[in-house]
Computed example of a mutant assay.
Amino acid sequence: MSAEPWPEGVGKRILESVDSTNAEAARVAASLRGPEWILARRQTAGRGRRGRGWTDPAGNFAATLVMHPQEPPEHLALRSFVAALALQDALIAATGRPPGFALKWPNDVLLNGGKLAGILLETIPTPGALHLAVGIGVNLRHAPAPEPGAVAPVDLMSATGVALDPEDLLNLLAPAFARWEGRLQTYGFEPLRQAFLQRAARLGQRITARTVSETHDGTFDGIDARGALILTTARGRITVPAADVFFDENEARPCS
């Protein structure tokens, strides 16, 4: 396992313990002169999507990239695809095992069908600027208790036998993120959309997408030019910009 050089102009901050790397990002964003990765060896109050908690025992990976993208706010969500693609690249580089990893829309990385990692994007308003926190959590050594109806969590060491240090993963992740971010900036979202679909779990199979107010059952037919989920339902084809996705366990698992 050999990491590419650390990306030029990107900072690195290693903390022994913090409440949340995204919370730390919000505290320091206004003082930063450029993008910076914040890694915590222990996170005591991590959080996931929709305000849910994120269990993070010692030995797991918890990091946030603080960015200041110069683009309309509606484009910021595309960083979840940058992060997912980069994280899968980093994990493959660390383990040497491309089979088994897959991406679950919109922002989870799966290993052998179980949830290995999650990504949380949060905007950070500062005077005269809008920053973005890209939070990433990976179960390197410990998997949390499963939640009813959700994809069962897994950890990297139990599934692969690879004991990966969080800072070693960060040294692989940061260059991979910079590489995919460069593609987004140069070529737009389409190359990332195509790459995501090549790695997507359950493409062409039935899934359930739950928003705050609605539940949609249908066939996962892709993602559109804005990153929204495309579902073919009994009522026709729809797009879902944001939702929690659940799998039909009667369907085959292509990523196992």
Rank of each mutant, 00 (worst) to 15 (best):
T211E: 11
L87T: 06
E122I: 14
R179I: 00
P99N: 08
T186F: 01
D108V: 07
L140Q: 01
P7G: 05
A252R: 12
L169Y: 07
K12P: 00
A200K: 05
A94Y: 02
D244K: 03
S158Y: 04
L39V: 02
L156C: 09
A102I: 06
R49T: 09
A102C: 08
E190Q: 04
V212T: 14
E122L: 14
V240H: 01
L121I: 13
L103M: 14
L140C: 02
R52C: 09
H68M: 13
E74I: 02
L32R: 06
L169A: 05
L164P: 00
S80I: 07
K115H: 12
A45Y: 13
I207N: 06
S256I: 11
P175W: 05
A102L: 10
A178V: 00
I119D: 11
A117E: 06
F61H: 03
C255G: 09
L91N: 04
A242I: 10
P73G: 03
R49M: 10
S158T: 15
F177S: 01
R193K: 15
P191A: 00
K12L: 15
P127H: 13
A209N: 11
P98M: 10
A174C: 05
D248F: 13
A133H: 00
S17E: 15
W105T: 01
A201V: 07
R179A: 10
G128T: 13
A243M: 06
E251I: 09
G96P: 09
R179M: 02
